[in-house]
């Protein structure tokens, strides 16, 4: 279970999070939506401990991340998998070295066994025969899928997705959405996704939470969010420039 309790975070004088409360039950897939630059990725980075809150608590499976030392936190992260917005593949390593990286670092498996797992994970994301390619040789969609294969290499219990469909064409976006939905269902993981792509949100979420002005405005099922009376949510999900959300 993931829980953010009254989390505040500022960068210089810019208050990004102003008391975020969010609870994700085990096995649940929650999508946080919100405009660009509203602090969605900051929430994600709090959950995996890359950023520490100025105030408030981040609790994962009953463990307050603030109580962990840097070494303990690093060990704790083994239960996470994370897909980055730009995939963040290590560009000096080949595809198989990227996916097998975490196995090489944290297991004593021989190279052959790692290679087998890499092939299996690549097959799960619909890719074959690209083990020896370098990230620079891959398209945006392939990079995302390799990033996803790397995120699930250690069979994590929690997967975090940062803007999984940003920068992809509509068809590739749908491929990634289907993959994430399948992954959440088949691997029964807890997932937290950050996106402003509503099509993606409806497809992969059990629950959707709207972040606005540094706070979670509303949480609900995709249907509840679609039927929300809140004008901010209606403006956002309908992608309208008219409404209470000001575009500076």
């Amino acid at each position: 279970m993931i829980e953010l309790r009254n989390v505040y975070k500022s960068f210089n004088s810019h208050h990004v999070l102003r008391g975020v409360n969010l609870k994700i039950e085990a096995g649940e897939g929650v999508v946080v939506i919100g405009g660009s630059g509203t602090g969605k990725s900051v929430i994600l980075k709090h959950v995996i401990g890359l950023i520490r809150p100025d105030k408030g608590e981040v609790i994962i499976d009953g463990q307050n991340l603030a109580d962990l030392s840097e070494g303990e936190l690093s060990h704790f992260r083994k239960r996470f998998g994370m897909l980055f917005q730009g995939a963040a593949l290590f560009d000096s390593l080949s595809v198989w070295e990227n996916i097998g990286f975490v196995l090489k670092e944290h297991s004593r498996l021989p190279k052959e066994a790692i290679m087998e797992i890499v092939k299996a994970k690549l097959a799960m994301v619909g890719l074959r025969g690209i083990e020896d390619k370098m990230p620079a040789d891959l398209s945006g969609g392939m990079k995302k899928r390799v990033g996803l294969a790397r995120a699930i290499a250690m069979n994590p219990k929690i997967i975090l997705y940062d803007e999984p469909t940003t920068g992809l064409d509509p068809i590739m976006s749908d491929v990634i959405n289907n993959l994430i939905a399948q992954m959440n269902q088949n691997l029964s993981v807890t997932s937290l996704t950050i996106t402003h792509d509503m099509k993606s949100a409806y497809k992969i979420a059990n629950k959707i939470a709207m972040l606005y002005h540094g706070e979670i405005l509303e949480v609900g099922t995709p249907t509840q969010i679609q039927n929300s009376k809140n004008p901010v949510i209606q403006q956002f999900i309908n992608g309208s420039s008219e409404g209470p959300i000001r575009v500076d």
Binding site: S74, F84, Q85, A88, L89, F90, E105, R150
Partner: peptide
Amino acid sequence: TEQVDALATLAV
């Protein structure tokens, strides 16, 4: 390109 963050998330 967030590769440094990716390293940290992979517990390295």
